[in-house]
């Protein structure tokens, strides 16, 4: 396994290099803002970001060594969480606002023109405030994002493949152990990053706990966001682009 031969420092370097570029909406959002206009911009942006997310995942050391089915499942499970932690990271220095892209920044009031969105907006802003409070470092952020990807279907029943007879098979056990090994490597990298900060041992492990506890909030907001997007789709409120639609449908299918 690639990740097994990398030191934590080398792994961090590789994960930092995998970071996607800034994605621009390109083309101004129509003002005054309307529900359809905002949803159109947000979904267009999300679709663009998803394409870059696939390239990002492939650059996480060890990811492409997983089976193609595992790669698909992981991305289908985590995509909105990954979009959301990226949004929080971009917004960390802008209290009360969400920086969806360098050319699309929304205030709470602007977000409120989309029905049901303001609750999610507030949860995103609150989670972003927590990142600010923790003074999250970029190296920690990239590790957390990789952990979201690798941990995303840890508790998903394998019968979701629709191949119940195969569950617990040799290939599947190997796949799971590879995945756990990869996740451990990223954990080692995060622990290493925290250890460089000059904190006492106690402060180091409480920081690790605080960072990991962020992930449960991100999962929660993502689930809320997924339901919201699904409702918007049902109301024909958004033109869902091909990759976004595919990822949303897969998520709805897994969770039902």
């Amino acid at each position: 396994l690639v990740s097994a031969v990398l030191t934590p420092k080398q792994l961090i370097e590789r994960i930092m290099e995998a970071e996607p570029p800034d994605i621009y909406l390109l083309g101004d959002i129509k003002r005054p803002l309307t529900e359809a206009g905002v949803m159109m911009s947000l979904t267009r942006l999300a679709d663009k970001e998803l394409v870059h997310m696939i390239s990002w995942a492939k650059k996480i050391p060890g990811f492409v060594e997983l089976s193609l089915l595992d790669q698909v499942h992981l991305l289908e499970c985590c995509w909105l969480e990954v979009l959301m932690i990226g949004l929080m990271w971009r917004s960390v220095d802008h209290p009360g606002q969400l920086i969806f892209s360098p050319d699309l920044c929304l205030s709470r009031e602007e977000g409120s023109c989309v029905q049901g969105f303001v609750e999610i907006f507030d949860m995103l802003v609150a989670a972003t405030a927590r990142l600010r409070e923790l003074k999250l470092q970029k190296e920690e952020y990239v590790c957390l994002k990789a952990m979201i990807l690798l941990n995303s279907n840890m508790c998903l029943s394998s019968s979701d493949d629709g191949e119940g007879g195969d569950s617990g098979g040799d290939g599947e056990i190997k796949g799971r152990s590879r995945l756990l090994h990869l996740l451990d490597s990223v954990t080692d990298a995060l622990v290493w990053v925290i250890s460089k900060t000059g904190l006492t041992y106690r402060q180091q492990y409480t920081r690790l706990a605080h960072l990991l506890m962020l992930l449960s909030h991100i999962r929660h907001v993502s689930n809320k966001g997924m339901d919201h997007l699904h409702c918007m789709k049902m109301k024909n409120m958004v033109p869902l682009y091909d990759l976004l639609l595919e990822m949303l449908d897969a998520h709805i299918m897994h969770s039902s």
């Binding site: 394409v51 696939i54 390239s55 492939k58 650059k59 193609l68 790669q71 698909v72 991305l75 289908e76 091909d242 990759l243 595919e246 990822m247 897969a250």
Partner: peptide, 13 residues
């Protein structure tokens, strides 16, 4: 998952 598979299996630059 046609598009996702396509993106996962194409060689990156």
């Amino acid at each position: 998952h046609t598009k996702l598979l396509q993106l996962l299996t194409t060689k990156s630059e």
